[in-house]
Amino acid sequence: MTAGGAPVVETRGLEVRLNGRRVLWDIDLSIPAGCFVGIIGPNGAGKTTLLRVLLGLVPATAGEVRVFGLAPVEARKRGWRIGYVPQRPVFDPYFPVCVWDVVMMGRTPQIGWLRWPGKHDRERVAQAIELVGMKNRQGRRLAELSGGEQQRVFLARALASEAKLLLLDEATTGLDLPAQHELYALLQKLRQELALTVIAVSHDLLELAAHAEELVCINGTTHIHGNPQVVLHSHELREAYRCEFDFLYADRAALDTAPGGD
């Protein structure tokens, strides 16, 4: 646990260059433990890059990044697990694995090199599968599941590593509206039960606005960071997307009353 409510993720003046091109700059974030933060922004805004920085896969060229108070790579080495649910579909549904096998893969770092899964690992996997409600389908192959169920399996894989921070990259892409709502509702439930911090990236403002406690809008740099209502109505958001959003407000009102939103 992070002591005294220290932020789980903190960046100050973060800058990232990829192949000499400046992708992110002046990113200032402070995400407290247990928070559900949505990161929004247009295509090419650097949202995925930001997640990759937090995962320790892309180094910061300037500024500071702290995850659990440590540099991302250091945090991972110290056993702070960051669960990652990537954009679908990046997998082969006919790969010869069942739900159980996929979730067990999430424990690979805990099991360690040159070792096989033990009793504790199997318990954790069973628990993660139970948490996402896939227990009666744990022997199924991915090709035999719906898109929403597949995403729940990947969520379970992230949970199996005993992650305290979940990063989701466009996790609802390709899901229909009910499946999207279901996934977000599940995330809310898990966040409360497991005291998770959740950071979800999406280009779908409204969906995220309906579920996240805080929204961060980025387009290269942080444009605005605050509660969804404020962010959605801000001129900074329109600046980041470089277009007007008047048509959104009516939808927003509708979403507020839709089931699954809170």
């Binding site: 896969l57 990652y84 990537p86 990046v90 893969m105 690979t108 090199w113 990947f154």
Partner: peptide, 22 residues
């Protein structure tokens, strides 16, 4: 045989395997 579970993870999902520190 010794690296089997890591190789399987990478074969299935390289992106998440990398994110897990492999």
């Amino acid at each position: 045989a010794l690296l089997f579970k890591e190789l399987l993870f990478v074969a299935f999902d390289e992106e998440v395997a990398e994110a897990s520190g492999l």
